[in-house]
Write a protein that binds this DNA or RNA. Structure first.
Lengths: 199, 199
DNA sequence: CCGATTTGGTATTGACACGATACTAAACCG
DNA sequence: CGGTTTAGTATCGTGTCAATACCAAATCGG
């Protein structure tokens, strides 16, 4: 039996543990926990469909109750803003406040990671990304978990013209930058098997 | 600027979060926390140099005090055994108890992961492993953190004959299986750049 | 050889993550 | 328009986690 998957898991967990420690370090000034940094990072990358407590809970693998508490804290600290959705008034929408934006910009939580990957060729990184991405997709299928992803590669993504896009599921028009954010309604487009490219 | 490293980090964290949730699921019968599963898994793979609270704390990215608490709990539950080192009586050595062994064997915490990676070719996994391994090594250098690894690839590793090994640093002879475990004294042997292999 | 320092580990305390449960209010559905 | 579902909050108990203080064994420096 091949034990490589096992080893891969070990690496993923260890790296994640180290980043968690790193998050703790950079956020100790603000009295924040690692999970708060993750939450802020998520919000910095979420689009209009995924900027809700529900989606965040799914993304972080936590319950909605737990996430709700963390959001209360972040709100008290003035790092995020919460506002009601116009159409569905049960829904709470989230965004980074100016202070939250500033925190992410200054603390640079991923700096250590950027450094750690500096010697690895972009190609090897892309290969690793593609393998992990596929792992994640399968994982989510297995657990009936919702998928997250960027418009590029999503079934619902439609290109109206060179600079105009649309989400076929929601019917909304999307700005260029918004198609780069993390969406909750992501559905993998017909899956051709990707194989690693050479360097 | 290339954003691939960023994406890689996102994937690592998300997968790790999902596995954490998975750990919580499989260990909720035993009233254990995800970190306890990680600790037990670590012990199942640690060798004679790394089966101490200190090493575990380093590996998990936690402080020794925190780890000490978790170990107390695991001891109370009868999942691990703690005993004194003969030479240095400050040192506590750890090992899985029979119950701990059984738990790891039954709960199969990595099962979900095995499933999630089933469709990925061994070669792509190896490539991903190699990239992440290198990331980890650089990360540890940057933070003056100690490295972890298996004898194969360690500077101190000496092969006495076809089946006899020795750790040059500690001077101990090692059994074959022990060279496959996680060691704390690991030092990367002269680093030739590995490049991805084709499939 | 013996005081000073270092090292491995534990005890205690306080903040808070986290799940479980119970709840509210809005939306949906027949 | 009553029953159900859905998004989120409130509350509570367990236990992680860092910080601090502490102890004992080892090591170092004269």
């Amino acid at each position: 039996m091949d034990k490589s998957p096992q080893v891969l898991l070990e690496l993923v967990e260890r790296l994640s543990n180290l980043m968690r420690a790193e998050f703790r370090r950079v956020s100790s000034d603000e009295q924040l926990q690692p999970v708060h940094v993750q939450a802020l990072t998520y919000l910095a990358r979420a689009n209009r469909y995924s900027n809700t407590p529900q989606a965040m809970a799914e993304y972080l693998g936590l319950t909605k109750g737990t996430v709700s508490q963390s959001l209360l804290l972040l709100d008290r600290r003035g790092l995020i803003e919460r506002y009601q959705d116009d159409l569905d008034r049960r829904v709470v929408r989230l965004r980074l406040s100016q202070a939250g934006d500033a925190f992410i910009a200054e603390a640079q939580p991923q700096l250590a990671w950027q450094h750690a990957t500096r010697n690895i060729s972009p190609n090897r990184i892309r290969n690793a990304v593609s393998a992990l991405r596929e792992t994640l997709a399968t994982f989510q299928e297995d657990n009936e978990g919702r998928a997250f992803g960027q418009c590029h590669g999503c079934q619902h993504f439609e290109r109206l013209s060179t600079r105009a896009y649309r989400c076929g599921l929601m019917g909304d028009r999307l700005s260029g930058p918004e198609t780069k954010r993390i969406c909750w309604l992501y559905v993998q487009k017909g899956t051709a098997v990707e194989e690693d490219e050479d360097d």
